[in-house]
């Protein structure tokens, strides 16, 4: 559906994108992840045909964005970093304008109100955009991108400025849309990408630092497993019981957390939760908490960005 080949873009001497390539199939949801200034927005602007790359090609559903711009652009709904809203129009008039601009062929009134319903801006339809709050503007921007239900949606930080309830709604909406549409979204909120996307592309300094399925990235570098354990009992007994469990490599004592309860970090080379539980029970101890200390996406992300590989 989307094929990006060897994109390179310079701004003067600075390199904004350095040889980026990827391919997306129908129904893929890709997350661009990277710190500010990594080149996420530049990449999106090039894919949508707003700016041109120095080198490389972008093909949308077989149509090159430079060779057949009209055909390619018809298939894209784009929410830029700053929603492109005309300040002096009402939401209704603005969406009608965008509808005509995009040459959408669906019954206009029904189509627009259906989309307003989806992003929950029905109550603001008659308001002038200048008077809207940031959250509403953002959602009008999303509505604009959805007009005509284009097969490809490109959303640059779609949940910026929304309140927590709206964020959940919009994420759910994106996940639903992801069943039928090919979506690229950018974010610096990692949990968002984790929640919504099935593929992740980590970009920094215009380069792809890592790419893969969300799950595989999350698990990256998890050969040694860590479990946090809080147990009640005598510290020495608990410690030696944990130590004696098969496949446990190291036990770290973190001290008393509440009266008679001690915290440990158990490092092992396999899943030892059952045997740990049995071992503690044999000492008459009681396990109060057992929590895997998985490496979060944040940790992985920071490692990738700083170039550390484990």
């Amino acid at each position: 559906m989307i094929e990006v080949k060897n994109l390179t873009k310079h701004y003067g001497k600075n390199i904004a994108l350095d040889n980026i390539s990827f391919k997306l199939n129908e129904g893929d949801v890709l997350g661009f992840l990277g710190p500010n200034g990594a080149g996420k927005s530049t990449a999106m602007n090039i894919i949508t045909g707003y700016i041109s790359a120095d080198e490389g090609t972008v093909t949308i559903d077989g149509h090159d964005i430079l060779e057949e711009p009209s055909e390619a652009k018809k298939r894209i709904g784009y929410l830029p970093e700053i929603p492109p809203l005309y300040q002096d129009m009402t939401v209704q008039k603005y969406l009608e304008f965008m509808y005509r601009l995009k040459k959408v062929r669906k019954p206009m009134k029904e189509h627009i109100s259906e989309i307003c319903e989806m992003v929950q801006i029905r109550d603001a339809e008659e308001k002038i955009i200048r008077h809207l709050s940031k959250g509403y503007r953002q959602r009008v921007g999303i509505a604009q991108a959805l007009l005509g239900y284009p097969p490809v949606l490109i959303l640059d930080e779609p949940t910026v400025g929304l309140d927590p309830a709206q964020i959940i709604e919009i994420r759910k909406l994106i996940r639903d849309l992801g069943k039928k549409h090919t979506i690229i979204l950018s974010s610096h909120i990692l949990s968002e990408v984790q929640a919504v996307c099935d593929k992740i592309l980590v970009i920094n300094h215009g380069k792809i630092m890592a790419e893969g399925q969300t799950d595989s990235l999350t698990l990256l570098g998890r050969e040694t497993r860590k479990i946090k354990i809080v147990a009640e009992g005598r510290e020495q007994n608990l410690y030696s019981a944990l130590k004696s469990v098969d496949k446990v490599m190291n036990v770290e004592r973190l001290g008393e957390t509440e009266k008679g309860c001690y915290e440990f970090i158990v490092e092992s080379s396999a899943d030892v939760r059952r045997s740990v539980s049995k071992a503690v029970a044999r000492t008459d101890g009681i396990i109060l908490l057992m929590q895997p200390e998985g490496r979060s996406l944040e940790e992985t992300f920071l490692n990738i960005i700083s170039g550390k590989s484990e």
Partner: peptide
């Protein structure tokens, strides 16, 4: 100034 050119330039219009 208001970045609305992004809407025009990414729409199927020459």
């Amino acid at each position: 100034k208001y970045k609305t050119d992004q809407a025009l330039l990414t729409a199927p219009v020459s």
